[in-house]
């Protein structure tokens, strides 16, 4: 379904934000990508729909190499890739319905888009999706009147309006409280399974990733260094991805890792 081959990106020459990443998603599964800030998670998913232009390598979606496409071809390919963002990225001054329907912008003509004249099946599909994400009755509200959790659900509906072959999800819960995070993740993962849509999901919250994903990729310094099931994501694996730390839930301040740092004054001074 999705095949990533040696994908690389350097923003400044010589410094790789994404370094020779290869993997394949062969079945409709939810793939969580974890790793420290700056590991290249966001760059990776943006290189797939080319919101960020990769420097080398290719992303192949259902047999089509997206990396080689010209701008018209890229727009067609983007229609098949739904994207969900950390800050929801809704058009604030438009209504919930207009935001959801904007998922069809790749399919309607300019005048249809201008006059908000979408085909009836799009509109009924939008109502269905709004109902599915728990926002029926919200269609005429302006997006900026919604809470964070509600906005993200509109974001999910907008992405699914595209009837995507692939969902790219960038930190969907990083701006939400823990409870809302879990609700949003549940809706997202349920829908991804229901619609058999392979999903790449950047997330920095490891317990959420273990809870909801079918597979976990670990990244560090632009490289893919872990690929396994949530169960295989052991403390050793986390240490590999994030560096030395006491991962036990009961670990508190004064854990071995921190004491080690406190014991070396040179290191403390260097910080």
């Amino acid at each position: 379904m999705l095949k990533i081959e040696a994908l690389s990106k350097s923003y400044t020459a010589g410094v790789a934000a994404l370094d020779n990443v290869s993997f394949e998603v062969a079945e409709p599964q939810v793939v969580a990508i974890i790793g420290p800030s700056g590991a290249g998670k966001s760059t990776l998913i943006r290189c797939i729909n080319r919101l960020v232009e990769p420097t080398a390598g290719s992303a192949i979606l259902n047999g089509e190499n997206v990396t080689n496409l010209n701008s018209a071809g890229l727009r067609k390919a983007r229609r098949r890739m739904g994207m969900i963002f950390q800050e929801y990225n809704l058009v604030e001054r438009l209504t919930v319905m207009e935001n959801v329907l904007s998922g069809r912008l790749g399919y309607v003509s300019f005048w249809q888009a201008w006059r908000r004249n979408y085909p009836p099946e799009d509109i009924s599909n939008a109502f269905k999706l709004l109902d599915r994400v728990g926002l029926s009755g919200f269609q005429d509200q302006r997006a900026d009147a919604l809470s964070g959790g509600q906005r993200q659900r509109v974001g999910i509906a907008r992405a699914l309006m595209q009837k995507p072959d692939l969902l790219l999800v960038d930190e969907p819960t990083a701006s939400l409280d823990p409870k809302t995070s879990r609700q949003v993740m549940r809706i997202l993962v349920e829908l991804a399974h229901e619609l058999s849509t392979p999903t790449l999901l950047n997330i920095h919250d490891v317990p959420l990733a273990k809870n909801f994903a079918d597979r976990v990729l670990g990244m560090q310094d632009g490289k893919l260094i872990f690929d396994g099931t949530p169960d295989e994501l052991t403390e050793d694996a986390l240490t590999l991805i994030y560096g030395e730390e006491d991962w036990k839930p009961e670990a508190k301040a004064g854990s071995p890792a921190e004491q080690e740092n406190a014991d070396s004054p040179e290191q403390a001074a260097a910080v």
Binding site: N89, S102, A113, W114
Partner: peptide, 17 residues
């Protein structure tokens, strides 16, 4: 960015984004 990601052309990005 979100509107571009839907596959919308530049004029549509202008009127929505």
């Amino acid at each position: 960015e979100a509107i571009r990601a839907t596959g919308a052309s530049f004029p549509k990005v202008l009127i929505y984004g």
